[in-house]
Amino acid sequence: MKKPQILFKAVVLTGLFLLEGCSAQSQLIEDELQTVTTESLKYYLYYPEGYESSNDKGFGLLLFLHGGGESGAELEEIKKNGPPKLLVEGKQFPFLVLAPQNPYRRKWWNTEAIIKLLDSVVETNNVDKKRIYLTGLSRGASASWELATQYPKKFAAMAVVCGMAPLPYAHWINKKMPIWVFHGDRDEVISVEESDKMVAKLKEMNYDVRYTRYQDVGHNSWSRAYTTEELYEWLAEQKQK
Results as ranks from 00 to 15, higher is better:
P4C: 03
Q5D: 14
I6Y: 01
V12R: 15
T14R: 12
E20N: 13
G21E: 08
S26T: 13
S26R: 15
S26V: 12
L33D: 12
E49K: 15
G50T: 00
E52M: 08
S53Y: 08
N55P: 11
L62V: 02
L65M: 06
G68C: 01
G68R: 05
E74Q: 10
N81G: 07
G82L: 08
L87G: 05
L96E: 04
Q101E: 07
R106E: 14
K107F: 02
T111K: 12
E112K: 14
I114S: 11
K116C: 10
D119K: 14
V121L: 13
E123Q: 11
K129I: 00
R131M: 02
R131H: 03
Y133I: 03
L134D: 07
G136Q: 08
A141P: 08
S142F: 09
S144E: 10
A148Y: 07
K153D: 15
V160S: 15
P166K: 03
Y169L: 03
A170N: 10
I173Q: 03
M177P: 00
I179Y: 10
I179A: 04
W180N: 04
V181G: 01
F182Y: 15
R186S: 09
E193M: 08
S195N: 07
K197I: 08
K197Q: 14
A200Q: 10
A200Y: 06
K201M: 14
N206L: 10
D208Y: 07
Q215R: 13
V217Y: 06
G218T: 09
W222D: 12
S223H: 15
S223E: 15
E229T: 05
Q238Y: 01
K239Q: 15
